[in-house]
């Protein structure tokens, strides 16, 4: 299996804490091409631990592309070079022997670095808390089949809902905008009859929160969509724009909240 072994040079961003300055550290690893990218980092960390050095901090959990924990900017691209793939699903067979790989944290003002490659994405939680829900309490809801929903609408809502909240859209956007993330939730809920009732206040509040977090504005570049591991569509941004304009000019609401 010798042909499955490759050597890589890694330029890994190291940073002690949020307000510390960071720098690239160079390491070399010998790895197997069947490994995932994170397993490659496991190898690096095992090396570092054996040398009694501090392992590289990076976030990961499910390692099957659904929890949204893993991040990393690999050679300039969030989640690396493959489309529709999270870092944990990126396998080393896509890299060449002898290659140098830059590994950096997501960079955005709203995503401060916690340590090394770990960033704080709690801004996303606060955006959801500002309105990314349907205000129903447990119990007392109608039967699941009480309201029929056109299949194509259910499918669009589902596709928007597949967002894993990883933040790659922000990391990829030249403006560090969170429009794709926010709009995915806005459009999922505005498409469904259950979410329609509070669609106006939802979009107003979520956009306000998004702005307050310090994300940039959308220039419709499309880098977010191209880098999104779940292929969340730019259409959602258009839907949010439409909802927002409607909520501002057509609805009878006078102010947010």
């Amino acid at each position: 299996m010798a042909h499955d072994e490759i050597s890589l040079t890694l330029k890994v961003w190291r940073q002690k804490g949020p307000n510390k300055s960071g720098n690239f550290e160079t390491h070399s690893v010998k790895i197997n091409t069947h490994m995932s990218f994170l397993e490659m980092l496991d190898v690096l960390n095992e090396q570092l631990i054996m040398q009694k050095k501090e392992p590289v901090a990076f976030e990961h959990d499910c390692r099957e592309g659904i929890c949204g924990s893993c991040s990393l900017v690999i050679n300039g691209r969030p989640h690396g070079p493959m489309q529709g793939t999270t870092t944990c699903q990126l396998h080393m067979r896509h890299f060449q022997d002898g290659e140098t790989i830059y590994i950096e944290p997501y960079r955005a003002k709203a995503f401060p670095v916690i340590k090394d490659l770990v960033v704080d994405r709690s801004a996303f939680d606060r955006i959801i808390q500002s309105g990314g829900y349907v205000s129903v309490n447990t119990g007392g809801v109608p039967d699941g089949n009480a309201i029929a929903i056109e299949m194509i609408t259910a499918k669009r809502a589902f596709e928007a809902a597949t967002c894993i909240g990883c933040g790659a859209c922000v990391a990829a956007c030249p403006n560090a905008s969170a429009m794709l993330f926010t709009s995915a939730k806005v459009s999922q809920l505005s498409l469904l009859p259950q979410g329609r009732q509070e669609a106006n206040q939802r979009v107003l509040n979520m956009v306000t929160q998004m702005d307050n977090e310090g994300f940039g504005l959308c220039s419709n570049v499309g880098a977010c969509e191209a880098e999104c591991p779940k292929g969340i569509s730019l259409d959602n941004i258009a839907i949010m724009n439409r909802e927002y304009i409607g909520a501002s000019f057509i609805s009878r609401r006078l102010a947010n909240k």
Binding site: R77, E104, G222
Partner: peptide, 11 residues
Amino acid sequence: RYAGKQVAPTE
């Protein structure tokens, strides 16, 4: 922003 040079292909 990033030392890595690649950028996503977009329209």
